[in-house]
Computed example of a mutant assay.
Amino acid sequence: MTMSGIAFPSLHHRKRKRSGWRGLLYIAPAMALVTVFFVLPVLFTVWMSLHKWPLLGKPAWIGFGNYVRMVSDARFMAALGFTAHYTIIVTIAIFALAFPLAMFVEKPRPLVSAYRTIIFLPVVVGLASASLLWVWLANVDSGLFAPLMQRLGLTNGRINLLADFDTAFLTIIVMVVWKIAGFTMIILLTGLQAIPAELTEAARIDGARRWQRFRYLTLPLMRRTMALALILSVTGSILAFDQFYIMTSGGPQNRMISVVYYIFNQSFVSFNLGYGAALSIALLAILVTISIFQLWLLNVGDERP
């Protein structure tokens, strides 16, 4: 609207501007928390990573020296390889159990609510507490696993499951699957319940068998839910620390040192805070890459105008 050649902002424009400022005011507390507890610590970690930063003494600027050291650090590469190996195996194991469980508790049946509760119960136990529980269960003298395996004829005598790499690794995998599968099941169950029953019924009436309905109907419609569960599982596995620290202390023969465990050792055992900060930034870059892949995975196949 104009008057004598002078333009005035419309009432609608002024309302939109006030609404925008009001929205910023509403999110200001969250932005402040993110800035204080995430952005600033990350920036400070980046600054630390560019220094030789001992626990005691004056930090010394070394530029990208810590990152150059990282590339030639055989122990870090070994930790990265072990973490990738662990992540692949535990993710496959979790999905192999969680998906059938989700399909089982998704159908109406007697006591289905009780089944869901029982399966989900381990999730509410803290990972550190679960690790301590399984350390006791695997104890040769007072635990339950060693005498049970002996009575079943699986072993000639009582063995320490956490003393050998293979048995210790298998024990940790089983513990993590027991602890996490219920959470993944709930995510997958949400996706299954979001599939319209009319589509499944129409496919059944058209003669599609159970496997065909699963392959061509359930899986495509579950793509986004499965991608979310996959990324959460992979991210959590990459950040694994408690189970290795509590159950094996990185052993046997330091073969169970994950990336986070190695960062912990460098930062708080060897007191190489600068190098630990550089390792943390490298791990953050890996997680950001996975997040970008998640966004692509969630959007792939969408119809574009």
Rank of each mutant, 00 (worst) to 15 (best):
residue 130 A to S: 05
residue 133 L to R: 08
residue 135 V to W: 11
residue 136 W to H: 13
residue 140 V to G: 08
residue 143 G to N: 12
residue 144 L to F: 14
residue 145 F to M: 12
residue 146 A to K: 04
residue 147 P to C: 11
residue 147 P to Q: 09
residue 148 L to S: 15
residue 149 M to P: 01
residue 149 M to E: 02
residue 149 M to G: 03
residue 151 R to E: 05
residue 152 L to Q: 08
residue 155 T to M: 07
residue 157 G to M: 02
residue 158 R to L: 10
residue 160 N to G: 12
residue 161 L to A: 02
residue 161 L to M: 09
residue 163 A to D: 03
residue 163 A to I: 03
residue 166 D to Q: 15
residue 167 T to R: 06
residue 167 T to D: 04
residue 168 A to C: 05
residue 171 T to Q: 05
residue 171 T to G: 01
residue 172 I to W: 02
residue 172 I to L: 14
residue 172 I to G: 02
residue 172 I to M: 08
residue 176 V to K: 14
residue 177 V to M: 06
residue 177 V to A: 13
residue 179 K to I: 01
residue 186 I to R: 03
residue 186 I to N: 03
residue 188 L to F: 06
residue 193 Q to W: 13
residue 195 I to W: 05
residue 195 I to P: 07
residue 197 A to M: 11
residue 197 A to S: 15
residue 198 E to T: 00
residue 200 T to Q: 14
residue 202 A to D: 03
residue 204 R to Y: 10
residue 204 R to P: 04
residue 207 G to N: 01
residue 208 A to G: 07
residue 208 A to P: 00
residue 209 R to N: 15
residue 209 R to S: 15
residue 210 R to T: 09
residue 212 Q to F: 10
residue 213 R to Q: 13
residue 216 Y to K: 07
residue 217 L to A: 12
residue 220 P to K: 15
residue 221 L to C: 03
residue 222 M to E: 04
residue 225 T to G: 10
residue 225 T to R: 07
residue 225 T to C: 11
residue 227 A to L: 08
residue 228 L to F: 14
residue 229 A to W: 00
residue 229 A to E: 09
residue 230 L to G: 09
residue 232 L to N: 04
residue 232 L to G: 05
residue 232 L to D: 00
residue 233 S to F: 06
residue 239 L to Y: 10
residue 239 L to N: 12
residue 239 L to D: 09
residue 239 L to R: 15
residue 240 A to V: 03
residue 240 A to R: 10
residue 241 F to T: 05
residue 241 F to I: 00
residue 243 Q to P: 03
residue 244 F to S: 01
residue 245 Y to M: 14
residue 246 I to G: 11
residue 248 T to Y: 08
residue 249 S to N: 13
residue 250 G to E: 06
residue 255 R to K: 11
residue 256 M to I: 02
residue 256 M to Q: 08
residue 260 V to L: 13
residue 260 V to D: 01
residue 261 Y to N: 03
residue 262 Y to V: 05
residue 262 Y to A: 01
residue 262 Y to G: 05
residue 263 I to C: 04
